[in-house]
Design a binder for these strands. Structure first.
Lengths: 269, 269
DNA sequence: ACTAATGTTCTTTTAATCGGAACTTAACTT
DNA sequence: AAGTTAAGTTCCGATTAAAAGAACATTAGT
């Protein structure tokens, strides 16, 4: 039977299947996938795929080209995604922040949100400098601690949670060349200096400065970061970028404070 | 009392439920929803919601704030959404087109994709002109024929499909003040002139010009449109904007023609 | 501390889904 | 043009994931 990696007879079979299929469609988003292709890639049964895809199409999570019969990711996902970043009412404030940061720094600016034990890149701006460091695309996920924004987020979690994450999620961090000891040191460093610094640890030649946005309880919920080639990231520049970030974060917290639906509300009053 | 509006015992109950819940979460994306709120808004049973949300969270379609317990739309949707617009490999070409159009026209530029019998706004650019006509947000859907891009798409469908759509989807168009006769006339007009023109039909004071992108078989699959206040949309300007659109569409078809995975490939060779 | 509302975990019952096989349709080969 | 392979669709009974109610635990509000 098909299943190379076990048919995932888990509890939420249906959602699991949905996710598997959408992931498959995402991989070949350009030209779409035929039913058989989906069967091959997912390892699910032909009938199951057929039925599932029919359902997904009926509800707009997938689309089928009438001409070719190829399946694509459904455009209903767009509306949800656009709203998924409105979390904590942050999205309306950060766009101008990103623009300013990109203009001032001339490098690449990232905005990430905490999602489970991962940091998700939610928005991005490119600065004017001709060598672009485009490490993350929108929607890309990284385990907490990997990357400057992600590291800032990890360091801004409650003490015991930091420990849990460092201890439990070793496998997810496997492919990155940072062992637990190094990570623990990095977190401490970040907490002391107030911003996260990465320089070549993840991608040789790339450096980045990240800073977390915290809710009223002080827990990190989002992060801003600026990435550039290592040469540009001199000691003085790190500090000045950290200042820029600090400034923008203060501004966000101030603006968000005016809105009662925001968990940031009580932070800087 | 589960079913206020019928529990939708349809075939794809599970996906339907997923969609219902995600839609509910989307409505209050800013502050999130508690379990009970989801129950109230969806009309589903408490246990069902609980289980379903657990599954959604486990797979990243929803996120739960650890602090408050509030549920949000999952950030995994972001990655899918970003890829959903790569359909036909178009997305890499249109971004610069939109930028150019926004700069030249100084008005709002929309890019829409065909999805079933609807047009979905997939990208948008604002021009410099201070009065912005922001009718559509990213992810918003309109029945075919409603709006300039949507009308251009409808007019670019095979003859019999146009008829089917005009005849069958009357209810979806109900809330817009365009009856079947008017729509049929508009379609004919569009096919003759080569571009779709809207002027006050949908939103008083707003005018827009739209043009469809066609695949190798000549079927419309996407549309570009420019919207402005009616005063700005004089007869001459309509023509010049249509020219701009025509130019960009020619460019896209030319560039896409170089890529074999595009159904546009054979169009302008 | 008391009360009300929210969230979680049970168990039984129901019916949606799975997966194989048979069938239809389309595409490709010689 | 006939033969052959692959793709897509429909049908069926067995399986098991999900529904629903109630009991229990937890949190918030007074």
């Amino acid at each position: 039977m098909t299943g190379s990696d076990a048919t995932e007879k888990g509890e939420h079979q249906n959602i699991a299947r949905t996710r598997t299929i959408l992931d498959a469609l995402a991989e070949s988003a350009g030209q779409g996938l035929r039913l058989t292709d989906v069967v091959r890639r997912t390892g699910l049964g032909k009938t199951s795929c057929h039925r599932a895809l029919a359902g997904l199409v009926a509800h707009g999570l997938a689309d089928q080209d009438e001409e070719s019969g190829h399946f694509f990711l459904g455009l209903r996902l767009l509306g949800w995604a656009a709203r998924s970043t409105r979390r904590y009412g942050l999205s309306r404030f950060i766009a101008p922040c990103l623009d300013r940061l990109a203009q001032m720094s001339e490098d690449t600016v990232y905005f990430s949100l905490l999602s489970g034990n991962e940091a998700v890149c939610v928005d991005r701006r490119e600065g004017a400098y001709p060598i672009k460091t485009l490490t993350l695309g929108i929607g890309d996920r990284r385990p907490l601690g990997i990357g400057s924004g992600s590291l800032a987020l990890l360091a801004a979690q409650p003490k015991e949670r930091v420990e849990t994450i460092i201890r439990t999620h070793t496998t997810e961090r496997q492919r990155y060349a940072i062992d637990d000891v190094a990570l623990r040191r990095k977190v401490k460093e970040t907490q002391e200096v107030g911003y996260a610094l990465i320089d070549g640890e993840i991608i040789p030649g790339m450096a980045a400065v990240g800073m977390a946005l915290r809710d009223a309880q002080g827990r990190g919920i989002a992060a801003l970061s600026v990435a550039a080639i290592s040469q540009r990231m001199t000691t003085e520049r790190r500090a000045s970028i950290a200042d820029l970030l600090q400034e923008e974060i203060a501004r966000i917290e101030c603006e968000a404070g005016a809105h009662l639906d925001s968990p940031l509300a009580t932070l800087r009053t």
